[in-house]
């Protein structure tokens, strides 16, 4: 599986309150959540992204609350992958569980610049910076997690197990 898009850069410790502020948590509708994605840190975010674009951020992305609304909002607004050196653990789990691709890669996080054209090969973990003609290798997922992702999320993978 591959994806390609423009990079949008953010700093370290991007928390779930700025990804999707709590005042919008009175709904769990992905389309409605998507409208407010990243609004408190970049009011124009949803207007400037195109389908398939990529978020590139610093350490500890997604820290704070357990709201699954955060990866749901990111996924629903068209972002195809988040790259960061480290993720907050609940955000990490949630992304895998809902089938939203994330990549842990310090080099990519540091070298990719705002607006760079980036393509990602999820099978090999190779991130290609088309604009700068560079490649970075992301941490591969453990088998167990790859299985959840391949099934399209946690619930499907449990269903899959039960059927066997």
């Amino acid at each position: 599986m591959e994806t390609k898009g423009k990079a949008h850069k953010f700093g370290a410790n991007i928390d779930t309150d700025v990804i999707i502020p709590a005042r919008y948590l009175n709904t769990s509708d992905p389309a409605e959540l998507a409208e407010h994605c990243m609004q408190d840190i970049d009011a124009d975010f949803t207007n400037k992204i195109a389908q398939g674009d990529i978020i590139v951020a610093g350490d500890n992305f997604g820290c704070g609350s357990s709201r699954e609304h955060a990866p749901i909002a990111i996924k629903a607004c068209g972002i195809s992958c988040v790259i960061a050196p480290t993720f907050a653990r609940i955000f990490y789990r949630n992304s895998i569980n809902i089938g939203m691709p994330i990549m842990e890669c310090r080099e990519a996080s540091e070298k990719i610049q705002e607006g760079d054209e980036v393509s990602i090969d999820f099978d090999t973990g190779i991130i290609t910076n088309v604009t700068r003609n560079e490649q970075y290798q992301a941490e591969p997922f453990p088998e167990f997690i790859k299985h959840i992702m391949d099934c399209g999320g946690l619930m499907n993978s449990i269903r899959h197990q039960e059927e066997q």
Partner: peptide, 29 residues
Amino acid sequence: GADSHTCTYGALGAFSTGVGSTDLAAGIA
């Protein structure tokens, strides 16, 4: 618990941790 502060119960000597809603749905089932 589908709430990040579920870690509170560590005070009682329990293992407790926050997860997301999908983890929790799987837990309920």
